[in-house]
Nucleic acid binder design. Structure first.
Lengths: 226, 226
DNA sequence: GCTGGTCGTTTACAGGGGTTAAATTTGCAA
DNA sequence: TTGCAAATTTAACCCCTGTAAACGACCAGC
């Protein structure tokens, strides 16, 4: 029997694999390393390895020994369901309950595993049926459709062009707080005035204010032209 | 080391023990049976037994072998924290999210184990800082204070006296739906016109409507004179 | 082509929570 | 008082998820 009920832990592994693939997965043919996964999930490597074989047995992912893992179609579908719950929860916490965007990631992680579909849908409605979470990540539709954002790194964006922040890819509370204070949040308009070479800092224009941000921060932010 | 972190399961046992003590615990010196607990938690008797010894080791309850169990002061405190989370969640689901009172018990059970104190408090605020859950059960304050409702069974209430429904002590969805349709919800005014002897049905007056309810339902409803 | 270091995998084990089956104790009825 | 049925407890086992430590594969540099 391969169509077992998935445990919450299994779903969390799948979601984290998806996130990882999404983040750095553009590299090579899409295999991600199991130790990177262990790092993100904060568990030991053997724990990941055993879970990987279990998920592989259910045809939710492919495991190329010593090479890495990649989600199958089915695994991706499960992962997207999880991501949907998680991001809707985050949107609800911010839009409806008034939490700040740096307070929500862990909270949402704890809660979202336990949500029924009915409750998730109601949360989405109350949050205004958002298409992105507070950090800008797209929210999969119920059918598993995932919009493609087509955005680029702020650190690599063209200069003197009006840009819009799409996503902010960190969950570290202090960084999020700092970025919010600068106004670097999804939807904000920003222009790169100057980018110093050799991964130097960027001079930005934000609502007529000029700001400097380091390259490491600029690599967490993605933007779109439009 | 006795002051370990309690698992969610352990807390759920404690909460259910409290509910049970509260319901029928007025009998004898307050020991409740482990098999009743097993029934409510839908687990086997040995599972309860092992958990009981574990909770006893942490001084959260007293176990008189073959007699029953009772919460200690510390155990009661934990139980009240859980009940608070659970009932606030229920109030939030109804008052803020618009769910019906028969849809919420299981949902709240799944969710409430994962809520942080900050989120619980925010939910309470948004729900209007309720003192009772949608079924009328009192919500413990943060300090663990639990109001005493001083109510009596509708089935044993005096006749021709204006009464107010305080609580409805079932979680069965169909019964709750039926009672809501009748208007027998916490806060409703009701008068017992006549109670047939030998546990017969009761004739009630509800908002100028006359209704008949069976004795078994009347035993689920508690009222207060005021 | 060998050799070491790193990363991935396997093995052995721990602990939480659950189950069924067998032993006990209890309490009630004959 | 005895005897039996029901309730409780113990015993032996399962699955899940985790850990640490030993083991094996892969790659780089000599």
């Amino acid at each position: 029997m391969t169509t077992n009920e998935l445990s919450i832990t299994m779903r969390e592994y799948l979601a984290e694999i998806y996130r990882l693939s999404d983040r750095e997965g553009a590299t090579q043919q899409g295999y991600i390393s199991t130790s990177a996964l262990a790092e993100l999930l904060d568990v030991s490597a053997p724990a990941v390895n055993r879970m990987v074989t279990k998920l592989k047995d259910q045809h939710l992912l492919i495991h190329e020994p010593y090479q890495g893992i990649a989600l199958t179609e089915a695994g991706q579908k499960e992962a997207l369901t999880m991501l949907r719950r998680h991001r809707i929860t985050e949107a609800f916490l911010v839009n409806v309950m008034g939490f700040a965007w740096h307070e929500i990631h862990e909270e949402a992680s704890r809660i979202s595993g336990t949500l029924s579909e009915a409750l998730t849908q109601r949360m989405a409605d109350m949050a205004g049926n958002p298409t992105i979470c507070p950090h800008g990540e797209p929210i999969p539709a119920e059918d598993g459709t995932m919009p493609d954002l087509q955005d680029i790194l702020l650190a690599e964006a063209p200069q003197n062009t009006p840009l819009y922040v799409t996503r902010v890819r960190t969950r570290e509370a202090d960084r999020l707080q700092y970025l919010a204070a600068l106004g670097l949040v999804p939807g904000a308009e920003v222009t790169v005035i100057h980018a110093a070479p050799f991964n130097g800092p960027l001079q930005l224009k934000l609502k007529d204010e000029y700001r400097i941000v380091g390259h490491n921060l600029a690599e967490l932010i993605r933007v779109r032209g439009e």
